[in-house]
Amino acid sequence: MTASLADVPRLLAVAISAAALGAGALTLLVTRRPSLALAVLLDLLLAAGLLRLGSDPGWQAIAVAAALVGLRRVIGAGLRVGGRSWARAPSAPGPGRSSRADLRQLLTPTWRR
């Protein structure tokens, strides 16, 4: 009984991780903003990591939580510096714009444009 109770947060953490992937994908599809989708994904993944850290405070869970915190900071800083989106592209000529141009726009660093 005790073991099964201890497993509940772990199972819920897995469920929330799956929900994070779903919410991130939905956000990307709807808004076409990778930065926002990534933020949504990381927020829910962080909730899952905190649950896992509460149920099993071993070194691996600690390392995963620390990595998540660091990743959130690094990715957040990177996205704030070079924020861009599929929705608003300054060089968009019109409706005939290809997805290849979208991809190039996303992958080109801001300082090279």
Partner: peptide, 21 residues
């Protein structure tokens, strides 16, 4: 703590889906 985090995550997920759709 676990209850607060779970409720927040589930509620936020439902709201994300609702807002997205």
């Amino acid at each position: 703590a676990a209850a607060v985090i779970i409720i927040g995550a589930v509620w936020a997920f439902a709201l994300f889906v609702w807002v997205g759709i």
